[in-house]
């Protein structure tokens, strides 16, 4: 192992890691937002809308992420969407994630007992408050594992952005490998950083899960 290499390439690798985290965080946030809105819109009683949204979800889930990225990045300019590689990567990640998040949220909505909503309605809570204070907190408990799982899948998908020349970790590591022929160091760096990212995300997920379900798992007789 050539430790000198890490000193020389450390800054660019760290910058790449920062870019990976940025793309992942922004893409995930965008995906969740679009996914939530999609799931919400599918519940509206507008004829045909649910069908159109379902088609969107099926198309996004049925095609490879790489093809979606190419379509957005090199096909986009032909219909007036001109994005640089990083923005295209983030938007692509958001679109890709949105279809999966939409399905997760849909399952969450379906899992909220009808009685909760009816009770809130009979207490004259406005619809916005029902959504915010009754439906979302309840569904979050049941869908959190699936959400975290999808977030972890998206950390791994960020690697594909390197093909669009987004200067994230994979791209920087490949540059290092190409310039120095240092195979093992490159593998070591990538394995370490991606493992770190996945570990942190799953730990945060577990912590969030504990926090959300603490009222369900409290021992009998415990005083909070």
């Amino acid at each position: 192992m050539d430790y000198d290499l890490f000193l020389r390439y450390g800054p660019s690798l760290l910058r790449g890691f920062g870019m990976t985290i940025l793309c992942w965080a922004a893409g995930t946030a965008l995906g969740m937002l679009i996914g939530f809105l999609l799931a919400l819109a599918r519940r509206l009683p507008i004829p045909g809308l649910s069908w159109v949204l379902r088609a969107y979800i099926e198309v996004v889930r049925g095609t490879p992420f790489l093809v979606q990225l190419f379509l957005l990045y090199s096909g986009g300019p032909f219909i007036g969407i001109r994005l640089d590689a990083t923005t295209a990567g983030i938007v692509g990640l958001g679109i890709y994630g949105s279809a999966y998040f939409a399905e997760i949220f849909r399952g969450g909505f379906a899992a909220v007992p009808k009685g909760y909503v009816e009770a809130a309605e009979s207490l004259a809570l406005p619809p916005g408050a029902i959504l915010r204070r009754v439906v979302v907190p309840t569904m979050l408990i049941s869908i959190l594992p699936a959400l975290v799982n999808m977030m972890i899948i998206l950390t791994k998908e960020t690697v594909v952005l390197s093909i669009l020349t987004v200067p994230e970790l994979m791209y920087e590591a490949q540059t290092m490998a190409a310039e120095t022929f240092a195979a093992f160091e490159t593998i070591f760096v990538m394995a370490l950083f991606y493992w770190l990212l996945v570990e942190v995300v799953s730990r945060l997920g577990r912590r969030a899960e504990r926090k959300l379900t603490s009222h369900l798992t409290q021992k009998a007789g415990a005083v909070s």
Partner: peptide, 9 residues
């Protein structure tokens, strides 16, 4: 745990 693209490369 390791992204497929990395395994491939």
């Amino acid at each position: 745990g390791v992204p497929l693209l990395i395994q491939l490369l």
